[in-house]
Write a protein that binds this DNA or RNA. Structure first.
Lengths: 343, 343
DNA sequence: CTGAAAGCGCTTACAG
DNA sequence: CTGAAAGCGCTTACAG
């Protein structure tokens, strides 16, 4: 493929060395003294030739490229979880654009084999640093990346490598506890928490918050795991005195759909027959009243992660940035919690 | 930043030259004969050291990087136009993943100055080729890129550079004409087409299709441009005998919202008082009956564009791919066209 | 069968 | 004040 003009061409044209061209064009970072005349000749030649630096060569020589990676641990772009994925991507992209960084998207291997992932993950080195995103994340490749000094930031809290990996996440613990508090305030004492049968930091944090809230308000909160099959037995729960159901929010909305499905199947509705709350927002397009819950600040998480990564990439070890941030989740009052009359 | 092991380290470890390492690790493209033993030693050393090729160096030396660019001509990631942008991105990413290509996202300058854009656009050279996306596209930088032999594909029809730029678009002309045909079949003879006051290939194609449909069915179709201020005067249109309104679809949905706003303001509804059709799909979340129109195959456009770009990037000039493709738009019957009784 | 050399287009010390 | 050199980590002819 035919390439454009390079520094050597400018050098020839303006009668200086290629290195001088580099200095002039590089904005003279090193503070070298340059003859004004030389500078002008070089600039004129560059302009005339339509010179544009080759980013690959620049990167190889200087090891900084204004390129930030985003590695997502899914085979392909999430389409079924667009609600949760896109806002993050928007935040990431916004902040990257503001910082003048380009973005490179990596996707996990479809095969999902260790070796393959291993190779792919190392391609992130093309960028100056990389963001990682995904409910589940393989430990090993990241360890190597981090060990080699490559800047890495997670979107979402992570515990890997002894909690040393930088991240920007959401404070699910506080938000979940606060939601239980709202239920307590509404007079509910017997509550069922339904979560997915799948472990991830975001799941652990929510459960921890639920249990903390229960303890703080001396409530009877039982935790059930939804195994994906069948519908929750709402009738039995009611018989056990349950007046409010809290469901975990995940990107697929599986638990939420299971509960609303069970409600519909039983001819029940929220909050008429049962108070309902979700630890986040329900899936988009759900009809009916606004479900009580809280916002997950995905866009801000994306932005914050980029800012942190940029700070980590920068050579200037200024005031070391905070390596672990948990963003607050604003409560959504909603209309699905009603006062419990049994109190 | 500390880097990982390189070929030189492997060479030292296995007692061969760095060049031999390159040959072994490169899968021996050149068909060089290698001692099986050497191959094994090199591979073993690479494995032990956890070697991963530096993609930047690879690209500089070989000019192929398995990296495809996507340049979007907006200051930031479109959030208000997510409906139209995200499906394209999904298609692009899916196909890229299938082809084993990573994706690099470039955004236009926020400043929007010529020079700045010019510089940024050339950063796309980091990739092996680049997709371009945007309603409006500056001519000049693309020209240079194409002139230098850099593979470029547009998403959406483009006329720049004498129509030589490869693209994958949607066949708005046929789809728009077909929609007018549906209106004609329903007995409408006096139709108003409301479009944005903004020129782009997609707007021109729609208008052309509308006019072609009108001519084919000998209808009275007048074209109005919506200047963004105020609401269309539905009352006057009705007085002029208009029984159906067709609106352009654009990523912002501005025209559509103007018409539905005017309908509401006039206490009217579609199709009760007026038949309504849109040249595409209405903005998401619009309540009421399904609006008659057609699908825009955004995801397929994304996929097709990636396939085309990949073919262009590949060194093997096999059966030259079709450089210009227009994908069909499936009709959406909808419920907003009713039989015109005035016939 | 394998090594030494040149080169991709830059940046960054280091000499003058 | 500016040039020559080395080097970033690879690939690709080209010698042996």
């Amino acid at each position: 493929m035919a390439r454009g003009p390079r520094q050597a061409d400018i050098a020839r044209m303006s009668g200086v060395s290629q290195a001088t061209v580099s200095v002039v064009l590089g904005g003279n970072r090193a503070g070298v003294r340059l003859a004004e005349d030389t500078r002008r000749r070089v600039l004129a030649a560059a302009e005339e030739l339509g010179y544009v630096p080759d980013p690959v060569a620049t990167r190889l020589a200087s090891s900084r490229n204004n390129l930030l990676g985003l590695y997502t641990f899914t085979a392909t772009f999430p389409t079924d979880v667009a609600d949760s994925y896109y806002p993050i991507l928007v935040g990431v992209e916004e902040e990257a654009a503001e910082l003048g960084q380009d973005l490179i998207l990596f996707t996990g291997s479809s095969a999902g084999t260790r070796t393959h992932d291993h190779t792919r993950i190392h391609r992130t080195r093309l960028a100056d640093g990389c963001l990682f995103l995904g409910r589940h994340v393989p430990d090993e490749p990241i360890r190597e990346l981090v060990a080699s000094g490559f800047p890495v930031v997670y979107i979402g809290r992570r515990e890997e490598l002894g909690g040393t990996i930088p991240y920007v996440g959401a404070d699910y613990v506080s938000a979940s506890a606060e939601l239980i508090g709202r239920l307590a305030d509404a007079g509910h004492t017997t509550i069922r928490y339904l979560r997915e049968d799948d472990d991830a930091p975001s799941s652990r944090d929510r459960e921890q918050g639920v249990l903390a809230g229960a303890a703080a308000h001396r409530l009877d909160v039982r935790v059930d795991r939804f195994d994906g099959a069948g519908l929750p037995d709402l009738g039995r729960w009611a018989a056990e005195g349950v007046t409010a159901v809290v469901v975990e929010e995940t990107d697929t909305g599986a638990v939420f759909h299971a509960v609303t499905g069970a409600l519909a199947a039983a001819g029940m509705s929220a909050p008429g027959d049962l108070s309902l709350a979700v630890l986040g927002r329900p899936p988009a397009g759900v009809p009916g009243p606004v479900v009580s819950g809280f916002e997950v600040p995905r866009r801000e998480m994306g932005r914050g992660a980029v800012r942190l990564l940029d700070a980590l990439v920068g050579p200037d070890r200024r005031a070391a940035p905070e390596l672990h941030r948990l963003l607050p989740c604003a409560p959504v009052a909603g209309d699905t919690i009603r006062r419990n009359q049994d109190v």
